[in-house]
């Protein structure tokens, strides 16, 4: 059983943060809210999302599992204005999702969850450095790095206590340093890793500019990047595997 009413903005944020990595996903419809975990086909980027029941106008579920084509569902959600409410109801018999937006009824055929790639195990990461910053700082770092290179180095200087961003291109370079004062919080530790901008750009798309974003970093370790949405009642955690430094 699954029946819920949610604002279009909340649903869209949730779907967008997953669709940057995968086309299809499994959605767990738990009593306390819904959750999605997915990894891209190359096993480089992972998303782990929860959306609490409290984020919905109304929410009833009893632990079902559905498979959805994300772009389909996003297209339908896109039919609503951001303030509008979307009503979702699962028909267990036909395995279809009935979606209603202000009188518009859409019946979405679901995908067999078994046909969707297995949900990944969450890597066991012990990351020594933590950086908490505003979404817009992540955004401008990624944007600037993308102008010169296809990868970006993120690190923490634990002696001088600052977080830095480096991108080196064939001709041009980008560098940014943010100290304790520029950041919301900084826990220093040895951290320096290189990441593919292809992935980070996609993840960045899902980060609202006015949101507090936490980055957990290590030395040549995956990054854990997480933030809340839907007034803190939703949480997105991305994990991204590093590139090996060639030099």
């Amino acid at each position: 059983m699954f029946k819920a009413i949610v604002s279009a903005a909340t649903l869209t944020s949730a779907l967008d943060s997953v669709s940057v990595l995968v086309d299809e996903c499994k959605i767990h419809l738990e009593e306390e809210g819904l959750s999605i975990r997915a990894v891209d086909p190359a096993n480089v980027g992972m998303v782990d999302l929860t959306l609490d029941a409290a984020a919905f106008e109304s929410y009833e579920a009893d632990g079902g599992l559905i498979g959805v084509d994300l772009s389909r569902l996003e297209d339908i959600a896109g039919m609503a204005e951001s303030g509008q409410l979307i009503q979702l109801e699962l028909d267990e018999e036909t395995r279809k999702l009935h979606i209603q937006i202000d009188g518009l009824e859409y019946t979405l055929a679901l995908i067999d969850p078994d046909s969707i790639r297995q949900e990944p195990d969450i890597p066991d990461l012990d990351l020594p450095a933590r950086v908490v910053l505003e979404g817009k700082d992540v955004n401008r770092s990624v944007k600037a790095a993308d102008m010169v290179s296809d990868h970006i180095a993120l690190g923490v200087n634990d002696a001088e206590e600052f977080f830095y961003v480096n991108a080196e291109g064939d001709t041009d370079d980008v560098h940014l340093e943010l100290t304790q004062d520029d950041l919301i919080d900084l826990q220093v530790g040895p951290a320096h890793s290189l990441f593919s901008l292809d992935y980070l750009k996609d993840m960045n798309k899902a980060i609202p500019g006015d949101t507090e974003v936490t980055l957990d970093l290590g030395e040549e370790f995956p990054i854990k990047l997480y933030f809340g949405f839907a007034e803190g009642q939703g949480q997105v955690t991305y994990m991204l595997a590093p590139r090996i430094q060639s030099d």
Binding site: A42, P120, P123, S196, F221, M239, I244, S246
Partner: peptide, 13 residues
């Protein structure tokens, strides 16, 4: 080139 320098998350699970 991209595939040989990019690691996978499964190296950490």
């Amino acid at each position: 080139e991209a595939s040989v320098v990019q690691t996978g998350l499964d190296s950490w699970t």
